[in-house]
């Protein structure tokens, strides 16, 4: 391909040459982000509730403390207290091979394990690491959101005969969710950007594509500026979506 120069210095032909890879990378980045937002939110909710779990009578009281609160606290502390990059490498090169391994995987072994690792290894590890990491952060958002709801709301609901679960579902979470939308939105944007770290284990997303192009041509402006614009567009889109959600669910809030 003939070099095509934009503004005299931007080698557009390089980007065009790897166009299909950028396109696939963009799709992969979006896919990973969406999956991790959904899973991370579900996990964050579960962990957030586990961290608040309490009961009045034993043995439920002890169960809440030792089987729910303590493990979830340790989990959140670990995933917030260690770098995501380290978590990704740990999961991909240490944890996952323990479970999925052609020779002696605890979960899957043999030819299935080999093809799974080759086709989806980095994908699985990346999703796992990012989900676990964002779940830890989101659980804190849920915890703070739930705790911000006035006790009187829970008492009113319970006094009407609604169970704890129904109170959470109908009364607490809808109110907490509205307050959690801004931090959840920030978290989603952080997640989108953090997904670039998965490139280290060879997942062909946007950052990986840029690295490939930079490696092949030793040119950095073109690939990294291009993916910067793509990430930027995506984060703007996410921010817009969060704003829409806030407008939609913002009614009736007295704060």
């Amino acid at each position: 391909m003939e070099p095509i120069l934009w503004f005299g210095w931007f080698r557009a032909d390089i980007i065009a040459e790897y166009g299909v890879m950028f396109w696939r990378g963009l799709q992969m980045t979006i896919l990973v982000t969406v999956i991790c937002i959904v899973q991370g939110t579900a996990l964050g909710l579960a962990i957030g509730l586990a961290r608040l779990a309490d009961a009045r009578h034993s043995p439920a009281r002890q169960i809440c403390r030792y089987l729910l609160r303590w493990p979830s606290t340790v989990y959140v502390s670990f995933f917030r207290g260690t770098p995501l990059f380290v978590q990704i490498l740990l999961i991909h090169f240490a944890v996952l091979p323990l479970f999925i391994n052609p020779a002696d995987g605890l979960l899957i072994s043999g030819e299935t394990a080999r093809s799974l690792k080759q086709n989806y290894g980095a994908f699985i590890s990346g999703i796992l690491a990012l989900t676990l990491n964002s779940g830890a952060y989101i659980s804190e958002i849920f915890r703070a959101g739930i705790q911000s709801i006035d006790r009187g709301q829970i008492e009113a609901s319970r006094s009407l005969g609604l169970s704890f679960a129904r109170t959470m579902y109908h009364v607490v979470l809808p109110q907490a969710f509205r307050r959690m939308l801004p931090p959840l939105g920030n978290n989603a944007i952080a997640l989108l950007k953090d997904s670039s770290l998965i490139s280290a284990i060879g997942l062909a997303e946007l950052a990986y594509t840029a690295r490939t192009v930079a490696g092949a041509y030793s040119r950095y402006w073109e690939p990294y500026l291009s993916i910067s614009l793509m990430y930027w567009t995506l984060t703007l889109g996410l921010a817009w979506a969060v704003k829409r959600l806030e407008a939609r669910y913002g009614r009736g809030d007295t704060r």
């Binding site: 290894g121 280290a200 060879g202």
Partner: peptide
Amino acid sequence: KTNPDIKRFESTPVAISELANSG
């Protein structure tokens, strides 16, 4: 060059680890 069968890593040790893990 855009073949997805080519998996690119930051360093040879990482690539070899991936090989050892059958990735």
